[in-house]
Nucleic acid binder design. Sequence first.
DNA 1: GGTCTTGCCGAAAAGGTTTTCGTGGGCGAG
DNA 2: CTCGCCCACGAAAACCTTTTCGGCAAGACC
Lengths: 372, 372
Amino acid sequence: MIERSGGARARAANRGAGTGRSTGRSIMRDVAARAGVSSQTVSRVINGHPYVADDTRQRVLAAMRELDYQRNPAARALVTRRSGTLGIIGYESPLYGPTSMLYAIEGAARSAGYFVSVASVRHLDRRSVLDAADWLRRQSVEGLIAIAPKPAMAGALAEAAGELAAVTVGGGCSDEIASAQIDNVTGARLATRHLLDLGHTTVHHVSGPDDWPEAEERIRGWREALRAAGAPVPAVLPGDWSASTGYQQGERLAADPDVTAVFCASDQLALGVLRALHEAGRRVPEDVSVVGFDGTPDGAHFLPPLTSVRQDFAELGRRSLGLLLAQLDPAEQTPVRRRDLLVPELISRRSAAAPCGTGRPLRALRPASLIG
Amino acid sequence: MIERSGGARARAANRGAGTGRSTGRSIMRDVAARAGVSSQTVSRVINGHPYVADDTRQRVLAAMRELDYQRNPAARALVTRRSGTLGIIGYESPLYGPTSMLYAIEGAARSAGYFVSVASVRHLDRRSVLDAADWLRRQSVEGLIAIAPKPAMAGALAEAAGELAAVTVGGGCSDEIASAQIDNVTGARLATRHLLDLGHTTVHHVSGPDDWPEAEERIRGWREALRAAGAPVPAVLPGDWSASTGYQQGERLAADPDVTAVFCASDQLALGVLRALHEAGRRVPEDVSVVGFDGTPDGAHFLPPLTSVRQDFAELGRRSLGLLLAQLDPAEQTPVRRRDLLVPELISRRSAAAPCGTGRPLRALRPASLIG
DNA sequence: GGTCTTGCCGAAAAGGTTTTCGTGGGCGAG
DNA sequence: CTCGCCCACGAAAACCTTTTCGGCAAGACC
């Protein structure tokens, strides 16, 4: 076994191969030397190529273990032209959903063998997304997932991505780009129908910000459900997902004695609405029923516990990764431009009930009996 | 300009250098050729080395722009032995704090020129942390930040990190590892003192899980404040940060008519407590005052709005990055094993007030007048 | 006028892996 | 016996950048 570079030999000898004390510092050649094979054979073993004799494989494996060999991802990336990492553009928000999706994506990516790099954007404007995408590209990610952006941003993403695979999840989609989303229309319809079925003559709606497609779709679902039931369609009360605007709109709703049912586009909005109603002395659900959207765990402990439409954020995250992986797969011929729609589910808790006048009397508030 | 490999020349010609149509695909040699210099000079320009004539620099810069050159991070990492990325181990929780920290860290890292890679752990056990750290090391990150782990995990982290720089933030620390944290003791003292100052004879405490140091420290601060005031120290009611356990403990508190003040180790616990008190017919703050810990935005809309101890999670994230960067800096000689303590701040809202018997009568609940 | 610095730049090596090509032995088929 | 195939493995090229070394001018100094 002859090495050309004495320096390299010396180095290899007095760490990895020699003393074996520092971890992850030995290279392929060290392993090869120890196993008495060439480094190409080590490579073959690592990458599971056929045509390597079983006892050789065992020797190599043993050498790798003994030297605590870890392959150098940079060298690997250089030659394969694949970085093995995916980029996530995350929206910096205290919202419950985006976070859950981030972790779900990472978990799924890891089990698919991909690293995940994040770039956060503080504001959902075009420039931020472009910057973040650029930053990620500089790391030569193989694909991009943008979490919960507005549709204008999806456009920006499509532009920034260039020939890179890209997916949006949970927010603004655009025709140019694949996306995984909740079926917001169905979810809103579910919530609205639930309230109508309870006997309310109509349902008011506190919406999300009007430049979010999710907000718009929830408005649509709500409106369709009302129309289908022949119920009057009140004016939308615009919010911005936050408890604060929920509170403001809640005050207006509380002032109107005709209001008996409210569907909020997010649980946080509902939190604000509940507070406003409470402070105005309107009881929930006796006087007014409230339904939220998101199904956050906290909702179970609002006053009263909130009926809500649950989104499975984790599943959404996994789906978006699936979409991205499909685009990355060279076997997949069709240019994947799919939209993956996930149907949400209604969780019934105490904040929604039949209106007081309808005969069916409410059972009194019994603490734990109805907690879902 | 002679190239040894005809194949390489052809390839370079019909993309980057030639047509210039595909983005980010040209390499240094293309730029060098276009600028009429050698690739080493291009390297010098990029890395800001001195001794390059100004007009040469301009030519190179122009060529880079025209070719939309992006340097290959893999090749760079290979030769510099630096990946330029940091690893974050994130705890998969719907908690407000960890998320804010994650994004804050990423933002700060990006402006320091580092990429950020995440690995999430679903459960806070030793094995998960080891796995996550290992996964990150395989990507050859230069440093590790673990968000909000338990102390046992900090130990695991220290082990997993090996000679890698590592920091924990917002959670379990250990002597082996630097960490940025909230001063929980002071925060808890603040909350307790606030309640005592309002006239309560003592303060009850619903704690976090007992294997979290933050929970333990908050207990300590609470206890010290009580002792300092000569107030009796009731038994701790253990929780796990969640609204659910807050609710359970709240039911117990509600059953005891002597309880007039409760300090909860998290806002979510407080949410559950508030609900339990409400359902038991105990008014907040007339009968019982409640203070939380975290200062989540939602707390402002609880019923009633929650007095809480606000942690500046973003700042915490930035500090942890600072600690890590200090370890990475070769100029820094001292083995940095610091603990960075951040003092939290009390936000006073309506959920805490003087006890009813103390003379100072409460102003009636006026909706928006007291919102902080 | 020769030696020394200083500014500018090119040639070549190094970094660790995968890929392509090649080689030799064993073995079944003609 | 020879042709050709398959198996197991090694040699070398390629990936793209940074770093080290060295060359070459122009001016400063003795």
